[in-house]
Design a protein around this nucleic acid. Structure first.
Lengths: 193, 193
DNA sequence: TCTCAATGTGAGAGGTTCACACATTAGAGT
DNA sequence: ACTCTAATGTGTGAACCTCTCACATTGAGA
């Protein structure tokens, strides 16, 4: 053991973070274990506790990178003129994000991790909401962008949560699910204006 | 031990179900354990396995009663004439339900339990969707009630999931959160018609 | 060069899920 | 009334898990 590496890993925290997101993707949040992550990067099972206080902190860290990635993706979305198109674009992108890694998406919003205990997570969710607001404010004729952004977020989140949870697959055909985000967002946007 | 009870419990499956929902409410899905449920009803830690194949099955059973309760609540909602009012009513009731027992609500939609493995759960979610459809069809001028019901469900679910997950509490004041379901549903309903 | 704070290890306490052999008993058939 | 069998509960134990603590190692600064 410890060949190729020496006693100290050098970048253990980061390696564990990668292993955590991989494991979550492969076996779900419940399938993830600190031991397994440690095994995967080749350290003892107690080494991770030098970098994370407990198991939940590792999941929270994985969730945090998820929120950062989500923010980036919205930031790099092309600007559209029409309000309805923008709403549909956001909801669709949100759904796409969730479906690419459903397990991590669930971890990001899991009730299990106490968001008041992980302030960085809370701040990052706030930044995502801000991004929604900024995007909407470019084409929304209303002073109340904050609650409107929350509405759109809720709507997009609902579609994504139900779709990744396998709750609509038996109600709508696969082709319709991708369209669900679009049509829900458009109806909402029409009603807002 | 086993005083007041005799060797056989008599109604163990049901007692375990009650204990499960209580534990989930108190300590969350992750806090629940088969051992603890067994301890609470006063049987050995392997007794539950006579009634449920594994831990997940106990959670699935708790989720099932949740879905049944949800269906009942929608069934006993007073009928309204206006479409927008009906949509708002459904979304608001959905949010109320979620907030009464957030942990069980999360279990009902947890990715962890494989819905294809628990067919009864799947059937019951389908019945909830049917209930949505039936209610909507009474006041919706459209042939496409199935996708519309799915849209409303998504929307309501999103509000409930974000609210119970503590994601909007730091964006909107508590008073506004109760109104979030209402306003989102109304905007959507206006856009649909 | 020396030292010490940060980082990794090994052992272990206490918890968990679940399988398996065994004990008990309700109730169906006679 | 009497058996016997299937259903239900028990106890033990293997294989995991989280997290703690004393100890080993080493990179980087004084």
């Amino acid at each position: 053991m410890m060949s190729e590496r020496g006693y100290h890993h050098g970048d253990l925290r980061n390696a564990l973070l990668v292993a955590t997101t991989e494991l979550v993707r492969e076996h779900g949040a419940r399938g993830f274990s600190v031991s397994e992550a440690a095994r995967r990067v080749g350290v003892s099972s107690s080494a991770p506790y030098r970098h994370f206080p407990d198991r939940d902190a590792m999941l929270a860290a994985a969730a945090l990178t998820g929120f950062r990635e989500l923010e980036e993706r919205f930031a790099s979305l092309p600007a559209l003129k029409a309000f309805t198109d923008t709403a549909a674009q956001i909801a669709t992108e949100y759904l796409r994000f969730a479906r690419e890694d459903p397990a991590r998406f669930e971890v990001m919003f899991a009730h299990g991790i106490d968001k008041t205990k992980h302030q960085d997570l809370l701040r990052q969710t706030f930044r995502v909401q801000e991004r929604f607001e900024a995007t909407l404010s470019r084409c929304l004729r209303s002073a109340e962008t904050t609650p409107r952004a929350a509405e759109l977020w809720s709507l997009a989140h609902g579609v994504a949560a139900l779709a990744t949870g396998g709750n609509v697959q038996h109600i709508l055909p696969e082709a319709r699910i991708s369209a669900l985000a679009d049509s829900t967002a458009r109806a909402w946007a029409r009603g807002v204006q």
